[in-house]
């Protein structure tokens, strides 16, 4: 029981590393296609045009498709973004 934790940690780390190496081998395909796409945003919300390319579209109107529509992606989650992202941005804008 005591050794189950280190065994699981090492097994997950090894499997994740292997999966990342396998994905890295597919990077040429991604690099080939990405310049043709509007953005690197993932195609996870194709049914909602305000969410398909969240980095590019409708910055001020997250739910502009109809009045009183439920906000599918409301702001203010319980988890903050990584601190280093804000830190880097602060340094850049100084």
């Amino acid at each position: 029981m005591l050794f189950s934790l280190p065994v699981v940690l090492v097994a997950i780390t090894a499997h994740a590393r292997h999966a990342r190496a396998r994905r890295s081998a597919e990077q040429p395909a991604i690099v080939q296609l990405a310049p043709r796409l509007p953005s690197s945003d993932l195609a996870l919300s194709g049914g909602a045009r305000w969410l398909r390319m969240p980095s590019l579209e409708e910055p001020g109107a997250a739910f502009a498709d109809g009045p009183a529509l439920p906000d599918p992606d409301p702001a203010g989650g319980a988890m903050a973004p990584p601190r280093e992202v804000w830190a880097a941005e602060t340094r850049r804008t100084k």
Partner: peptide, 9 residues
């Protein structure tokens, strides 16, 4: 977590 879509990858 990732959203909804009729064309789900």
């Amino acid at each position: 977590l990732v959203g909804w879509s009729v064309l789900y990858p």
